Structure formats: structure tokens, C-alpha cells
Amino acid sequence: LTDEELVTMSVRELNQHLRGLSKEEIIQLKQRRRTLKNRGY
């Protein structure tokens, strides 16, 4: 997933992508998404 996709994707879509990932990967992705959102994309 690109940063842009992460930010513009709805939470529902995101959760579908996260299905099948490990807990660590999910946590990393969610942190990255929060960081991007805070940057004001």
C-alpha cells in the first residue's frame, strides 16, 4: 500500500487489507496511517 492509499482509504477498506496480516504488521500500518493523517495530507 502507498502512503496515499493508506490515507484516502476508508477504515472498512483498510481492515479488509489487514485481514491475514500479522499483529505486528497491522500495528505498524496503523501507526504509519496515523502519522500521515497528523501531517495533514
Rank of each mutant, 00 (worst) to 15 (best):
V11L: 12
T2F: 02
E24W: 11
S10A: 04
K23A: 09
I27A: 13
L18G: 02
D3T: 02
L6V: 03
Q31K: 11
R39I: 14
T35W: 15
Q16E: 13
L1I: 09
L18N: 02
S10H: 04
L14P: 00
K37Y: 05
Q31P: 00
N38H: 08
L36P: 01
H17P: 01
E25F: 06
I27L: 11
R33C: 14
I26G: 12
L1T: 02
R39S: 13
K23L: 10
L1D: 01
V11D: 13
G40R: 05
K30P: 00
L29Y: 06
R19M: 11
R32L: 04
E25N: 05
G20E: 05
R19T: 07
V11M: 12
E13C: 15
L6P: 00
E5P: 00
E24F: 09
L18E: 01
T2Q: 03
L6G: 00
D3R: 00
K37P: 01
S22P: 10
E5A: 09
G20W: 08
E24P: 08
Q31A: 13
H17K: 10
T8A: 13
S22G: 07
L29T: 06
Q31E: 14
G40H: 12
R12D: 09
L36S: 02
V11F: 09
S22T: 12
R19C: 04
L29A: 06
R12H: 11
I27M: 12
N15S: 09
L1Y: 04
Q28W: 12
K23H: 11
G20D: 06
L29P: 00
T35F: 15
E13T: 05
E13P: 00
Q16D: 10
L21S: 04
L21Q: 04
R34K: 13
R39M: 15
T2I: 02
N15V: 12
L29S: 02
L29R: 01
R39F: 09
Q31S: 09
E4K: 11
K30S: 04
T35L: 15
T8N: 14
Y41F: 13
L6S: 00
T2L: 04
I27S: 09
G20P: 03
G20H: 08
L1E: 00
L6A: 00
N38D: 12
K30R: 12
Q16T: 09
V7R: 08
N38M: 09
Y41Q: 14
T8Y: 07
R32A: 02
K37G: 04
R12N: 09
R39P: 10
R19D: 07
E4L: 14
I26A: 15
E4W: 15
R19F: 07
L36E: 01
Q31F: 07
I26E: 04
N15F: 12
E4Y: 15
L18Q: 02
L36H: 03
V11A: 10
E25D: 08
G40K: 09
K37M: 14
R12A: 12
R12V: 09
N15Y: 14
I26N: 03
R32D: 01
R34I: 08
E13V: 06
E24Y: 09
R32E: 01
E4H: 15
D3Q: 02
L36D: 01
L36T: 02
E5M: 14
T2K: 04
K30M: 15
E13F: 02
Q31N: 10
L6Y: 00
E4V: 09
Q28T: 11
Q28L: 13
M9E: 01
L1R: 01
L21T: 02
R19H: 08
Y41R: 06
L6C: 00
L14Q: 00
L6R: 00
R32I: 03
S10F: 01
T2P: 03
I27G: 07
E4R: 11
V7E: 06
D3I: 03
Q31R: 11
H17C: 07
R32W: 03
R39D: 09
Y41S: 11
N15D: 07
L18W: 05
T2V: 01
D3W: 04
K23R: 11
R12P: 07
T2S: 11
R19A: 11
K30E: 06
R33H: 14
N15T: 09
R32C: 03
T2M: 03
G20L: 07
S10P: 05
I26S: 08
R33P: 00
S22R: 07
R33E: 03
Q31D: 10
R19Q: 10
V7T: 06
K37I: 15
Q31Y: 07
